[in-house]
Write a protein that binds this DNA or RNA. Sequence first.
RNA 1: CGGGGUGUAGCGCAGCUUGGCUAGCGCGCCUGCUUUGGGAGCAGGAGGUCGAGAGUUCAAAUCUCUCCACCCCGACCA
Length: 580
Amino acid sequence: MRASQLFFPTLREIPAEAELASHRLLLRGGFIRKLSAGVYSYLPLGYKVIKKVEKIIREETDAAGGQELLMPALQPAELWQETNRWEVDTLFKLKDRADRWHALGMTHEEVITDIVRHDVRSYRELPLNLYQIQTKFRDEPRPRGGVIRGREFIMLDSYTFDRNDEELDLSYRKMRAAFARSFARCGIDFLIVEAESGAIGGKDNQEFTVITPAGEDSILHCKECDYAANAERCEVADRGYEPSNEPAKPIQAVDTPGAKTVEQVTGFLKTKPENLVKTLIYVADGKPIAALVRGDRELNEAKFSRNLDIYKLEMAGPELILELTGAEVGFSGPVGLKGVRIVADYEVRSMANFVTGANKTDTHYVNVNIGRDFNVDEWADIKVASDQDPCPRCEGVLQAERGIEVGHIFKLGTKYSEAMGATFLDEDGKEKPFIMGCYGLGVSRMLAAVSEARRDDDGIIWPVSIAPFEVVILLLNPLDEAQAAAAVRIYEELQNRGIDVLLDERDERSGVKFKDADLIGIPVQVVVGRLASEGKVEMRLRWDKQNKREVALNEATDEIAAAVQAEKRKLLDEADKYTV
RNA sequence: CGGGGUGUAGCGCAGCUUGGCUAGCGCGCCUGCUUUGGGAGCAGGAGGUCGAGAGUUCAAAUCUCUCCACCCCGACCA
């Protein structure tokens, strides 16, 4: 491709709407343009990257036994009603001319299960892995970061159907390896973390997360044993939380007028949130329950429910809190609390002389102590994990990091097959529901994740595998005949070798060409300038621009091709670390 | 949905507090000449419903009200 013919509107100035570096660079480099909040066009450069990512994930998913198909984005409401997901609030809904409701597909468990329940009857047809790469629609409450979280985005979604849990486990491990290999080939470091399954449901699930401060997910990672989990899921060991040996001071009620939040109370009492115990009143399966966590911690409702076998958990309303505690919201505490089961986070055990609500409006207790002032019915892991918490798998300590979720894989089990009556006839002659798995990879989000992870002050640094071009030739002075001839010669030779090359022969000053090449992040740069008259060109790599090499024109094509191959090889070697 | 912020030329911004003459600046864009190793110089030029609507006023980008869009934080997140 010749740059003079290529539509790549680069911007000199930073668009005001973009906060994240990746978002700014994608806009400035002419990769994407916004249509409305969370809805983006992929311009030629951006779409080239997407197509290269798609090629990689197709190859890897095919290698894992996947077969590509394409399902409709427009789906009848009845299908979603079968699995009780019609009410999911991020589902885009619309009516047709006959007043019938439809959804725009946010994910395709329903459609794929519908196909399979009609057309797969026997265990002999299993295992089955069907996938597609398609545009998804989700009415996100808050789109953000450009293509990081859009309302319309491109995703690979794969679905596996197996006879039993062992077979599902194999399908799952194959897809996990396929995803890991895909991300490695796209040149990014990632962590595989334990996660919550959300509305997709199912049992085991893991996320692929690119660690970067700009990420929207909070991740806890143990450096000792490689345990990694999303904060929404992460467990905390009951270790190091010994009862305090600090002498107990006399409990005392103090007036805290109007102080309801932790900040207000601790500010008023001139103490710190670490010195307060929050008492959160819930209704668990119809019974009141109090959850105690340290003032600067958050309750993790998912863990709370799971670890206490709660099926339905709801926060208590103001009336119920008044009835149970005798006080307004904000003044609940464990001391003297009757008829409410008290569950405390492990961490609370090591606290002494702390602050709690006094179950009396505008009053708190100070110097509260466990055992003397109240008793805990049960200790449990119920807080949102945070930095420096004890690792649940080893003796290590968890570290907090931020990450962008680029893939999420689930063992669904029979959640959808049972709800939709999707069964097969097994070897033993019995009708059984399919054991399903599903695997999602955010294709358009990869633009953001890779450019966030691989960049410098000048622009993006694409890996050669998904760069919009593998090589850019900077023809500095197109009017100089020796330069022009040399550039065109290398351009044509590289094209003949199947290398994706951009020839920048625009009538622009050299500075413009250098800036643009850096901004759009082509990995191999070939500078054709004054040295052309001596039969030489200059070669350098985007991430190591100072390190230029002069190459004889006759050898240039070989050298450049070798550099491209070497970079590709590195990425494949990285991918080969992952196996089933 | 709660909190904060922003809407003025393709992009980045000033002007608004204290209403007033033809709405400015930089970049980009068009034409010509010169220039060509890190976002060129000179000269000329095009480009605006000041987010929308209503109101106050002799007069509104500027004051008031309503609405809309977008961004950030939170909630949420398949």
